[in-house]
């Protein structure tokens, strides 16, 4: 298994870099074209949130394997202001007007989402998408 790839997110250009790395990784793991686009979109949304709400942070992309199932994991790590109500930012009617821009969308694009957030300390979001052959 390859090493995790890390992209520091400081400017908008870094979003593009993270997307590119994510797309390449997804392709190598064996995701089809639609899933590659979804994974890339999720990475883009996570990176954009870092810029918007924490101003700086990083995106970690890695291949994962569990019970013989391959997948891709993306972590977004920042030391920003954190979020008070994690369950709220995952609701559709909340995201459009306030902090959780795009998180409901990210949730739909992947199979698993874990959010750890502490007010004043930062947020870590980890998402996983499994490679399922149909």
């Amino acid at each position: 298994m390859r090493e995790a790839r890390v992209v520091e997110i400081v400017t908008e250009l870094d979003i593009v870099t993270a997307r590119k790395l994510g797309r390449d990784e997804a392709k190598e793991i064996g995701f089809n074209d639609v899933d590659q686009s979804r994974i890339t979109t999720a990475i883009g949304e996570l990176a954009k949130n870092i810029l918007l709400y924490a101003h700086a942070g990083k995106i970690v992309i890695e291949e994962v394997e569990e019970n013989g199932l391959k997948g891709i994991a993306i972590s977004s790590i920042d030391k920003g202001q954190g979020m008070k109500d994690v369950h709220k930012v995952l609701e559709d009617d909340y995201s459009s007007t306030s902090a959780g821009a795009g998180l409901p969308a990210v949730k739909r694009l992947v199979d698993l989402i874990e959010i750890e957030s502490r007010v004043g300390q930062g947020t870590t979001i980890k998402v996983v998408k499994w490679l399922v052959r149909v």
């Binding site: 074209d33 639609v34 686009s37 979804r38 890339t40 979109t41 969308a105 739909r108 694009l109």
Partner: peptide, 10 residues
Amino acid sequence: LIEVMVHFGL
């Protein structure tokens, strides 16, 4: 087109 339609699907 697939790429841009992801957001449409969302």
